[in-house]
Design a protein around this nucleic acid. Structure first.
Lengths: 215, 215
DNA sequence: CTCCCCTGCTCTGTGTACAAGCTAAGGAAG
DNA sequence: CTTCCTTAGCTTGTACACAGAGCAGGGGAG
């Protein structure tokens, strides 16, 4: 949209996803405006877009505050991702036009970081992973990507790859390879199944990380 | 959020959904502002919210214009609704707490309008129908309703019940009754199947209306 | 001592003014 | 006659100012 508003939106988004903004923290317009060196107008627009992304909740006369995620929400989120991304994989395998070579390249680049998960590699893996998923979404339709925006980059996702064990990481990469293979074969059911497993496995890892003792 | 912005948003939303705004029509901020007797500020916010709803597309230096729906989009939309609403019905049947009496009451009130579809009844049926679906969505989770906002009240939906034959209308109402029965029985698969059929039947009616000769 | 009311402050909601960018139309040159 | 450049108009993007609604803190009364 605008220059400043877009920039503020992206910055705040990064801060929230990166955990640098505590859940429940209030985002006062003037404070944010001063911090970014702009007026309140673009800040207001940025906050509204964050609300549309589901990252903040804005109450009529109280302003915006960073959304709090409950455990129930996380579970529902994994469920919906599995459903929608599975559907996306099926559609992409059947009809979507996607660059299989580029997808394979993404896999290769992710696997190159398999050794050093502890360093900055996790961020890069997160980025590449998101790029791969997005490519599948785009191939699946026009409306689907916009729907998934509210689900894919939720706060917790940001930290996911940091907490992966090497075994989990290899499984994840293996599923990526299998997904590409299923897409290449044009097998919708296969692609959907792999994607569902992929998402649910990530969900399980996430759950064990946040709640080590089980439920 | 605000008073004026909320009002303008609701009004414009109604105009777009009601077909009083032609697809592709540009919505200039000052023009809208003058029409509603407010300044550009709340209008801007209303337009951004419409963008979040997927009802307008706003291009950086060109402003907002009413979204154009292609036939492909409609098909994808029905697909996604069937997927997500089916999921919602399953979740609602299994765990969600919903007022079954109230749902039955909604069915009764809809059926009362079965005779005169031609009059103002169609609008009332649309409203009641939406209320019933929303109740199921709410019972299914916290994130789901927000996702479905972008899908449920798309322009074409508005005109749906006007074009229903009496037979189609009866089938639709019958499916509502069956859905409530499945929900009462706590049978997730049953509820999901009925809902899927319900959505896809509506999609078929929609398709035959827009494209009488078939594909 | 406690509870209620009042007052002051803070923050959002809205109005308005200015600046920047895009589009299109008109004129001049090849 | 065609094409490119320039310029003018329109529309959005941003900054700033004011008004109104909550909320908190303090003071007074019971």
């Amino acid at each position: 949209m605008s220059q400043s508003a877009t920039r503020v939106h992206a910055e705040l988004r990064g801060e929230i996803l990166g955990g640098r903004c505590a859940p429940g923290a209030r985002l006062r317009e003037e404070e944010v405006a001063e911090r970014f060196g702009v007026s309140r107008t673009p800040v207001r627009e940025a906050l509204r877009r964050l609300e549309a992304d589901g990252l903040v909740v804005v109450t009529p006369r109280r302003g915006a505050e960073v959304v709090r995620w409950r455990d129930d929400d996380i579970a529902e989120l994994v469920e919906l991702r599995a459903l929608l991304e599975g559907h996306a994989a099926r559609r992409a395998a059947i009809g979507g036009d996607l660059d299989l070579v580029a997808l394979g390249d993404l896999c290769t680049r992710m696997e190159a970081h398999a050794a050093d998960v502890d360093g900055r590699a996790a961020d890069e893996i997160t980025r590449l992973n998101m790029e791969l998923h997005r490519a599948v979404h785009r191939a699946a339709g026009r409306l689907l990507p916009d729907l998934l925006v509210r689900l894919i980059d939720v706060p917790v996702v940001r930290r996911t790859f940091h907490t992966y064990t090497e075994a989990e990481l290899r499984r994840s990469f293996g599923q990526h390879r299998e997904l590409v293979e299923a897409l290449a074969a044009g097998d919708g059911d296969w692609a959907a199944a792999v994607m569902q497993a992929h998402i649910r496995a990530a969900g399980a890892t996430l759950r064990s990380t946040r709640d080590p003792g089980g439920r």
